[in-house]
């Protein structure tokens, strides 16, 4: 009886989903998260712009994306209709979880979007500048407690890189991992910790409301509308970007790869995609081809070094 009610009420929607799938996008995370939203936004735009007739999204959550990655590498091999969404978090997760499957086992296509990190203190804090914070870190590393996302994630890596750049032993940082940027935010606002680090988007509203002070951002250049220096400007040679990418299956031919690259380029240059990015507050950091591959290799190497330095990878 419930079935009938449901079917009757939503019967109209059925026709729209009955075509054959052109692409299946695997989101290696739970519904609702960043990778899932990326996959679903791609789905909407690819279909709306007529780049693909039908796109399906499949969620395979687990272990920083490495469960989905392993499944994709084995089950999608050679299939040019399968895509996977991933990102920087996966680079770290592959290392810390000792995943047998790495990004070398899939075919990266392009970087799509990215977010930069911001270092903040509560408005009531005595610390006014990034230099003051680093001074305290140098004098007594343990006295600076950092609130951020999960251990070994982007936030943790960024603190490790900052310590290294400032000449502090990265194993001495007092990083307090919270289950997400949001939960960390509550601890920062409540002045439970010295400083906080997470994606800029998590802090922006609070900074505008005057409850948090942004000390620095991890971008290569200053970000419009944010009154804070970059870490590079402040003299710490580092850029951290939490990017998201799309990749194809291993074992596809060059022609198949080129076709996918063309579709993705059509996607990112479409009006629908730009509108979707603006709606969600994402930054377009599209990068494809050899440039992307070179950048990926470099990031994997830096990440591995810093995770070893922090002591998360033996």
């Amino acid at each position: 009886m419930k079935t009938i009610v449901l079917a009757a009420l939503a019967a109209g929607a059925l026709a729209a989903h009955a075509q054959a799938a052109d692409y299946t996008i695997l989101a290696p995370a739970n519904p609702g998260g960043g990778w899932d939203q990326t996959a679903r936004t791609m789905q909407e735009v690819l279909q709306a712009e007529g780049i693909s007739d039908s796109v399906q999204v499949q969620n395979v959550p687990g272990a920083g994306g490495t469960v989905g990655l392993a499944q994709f590498a084995s089950q999608a091999a050679g299939d040019p209709n399968q895509l996977i969404v991933g990102g920087y978090v996966m680079v770290g997760a592959i290392l810390t979880n000792q995943s047998p499957v790495s990004l070398a086992d899939i075919t990266p296509i392009a970087r799509l979007t990215g977010e930069y990190e911001a270092i903040v203190v509560p408005a009531s804090s005595e610390i006014q500048t990034i230099e003051q914070l680093v001074e305290q870190l140098k004098a007594e590393p343990g006295s600076v407690s950092w609130a951020g996302g999960s251990a070994g994630g982007t936030d943790h890596i960024a603190v490790g890189l900052l310590a290294k750049a400032a000449g502090v032993d990265p194993t001495l940082i007092n990083y307090v991992a919270f289950s997400g940027g949001g939960e960390a935010l509550a601890a920062i606002l409540g002045s439970q910790v010295t400083a906080g680090i997470s994606s800029l988007g998590e802090f922006r509203e609070q900074a505008e409301a005057g409850t948090l002070r942004i000390l620095a951002v991890s971008s290569p250049e200053r970000i419009e509308g944010v009154d804070a220096p970059t870490l590079q400007e402040a003299g710490y040679d580092m850029v951290v970007e939490n990017w998201r990418m799309v990749a194809a299956a291993p074992g596809i031919t060059e022609e198949q790869k080129a076709a996918i690259e063309a579709d993705i380029e059509a996607l990112v240059t479409s009006e629908g995609w730009q509108q979707a990015l603006a709606d969600r507050g994402w930054t377009d950091t599209y990068l494809a081809g050899e440039e992307f591959e070179a950048q990926l290799q470099e990031e994997i190497a830096t990440t591995e070094t810093v995770l070893r330095d922090i002591g998360l990878v033996q």
């Binding site: 469960v67 251990a151 919270f178 289950s179 998360l312």
Partner: peptide, 16 residues
Amino acid sequence: IDGLTGQARLSFGVPQ
């Protein structure tokens, strides 16, 4: 995975 240190506990090498 232990939330604070990233160490795996009682997972016996099963990624899931």
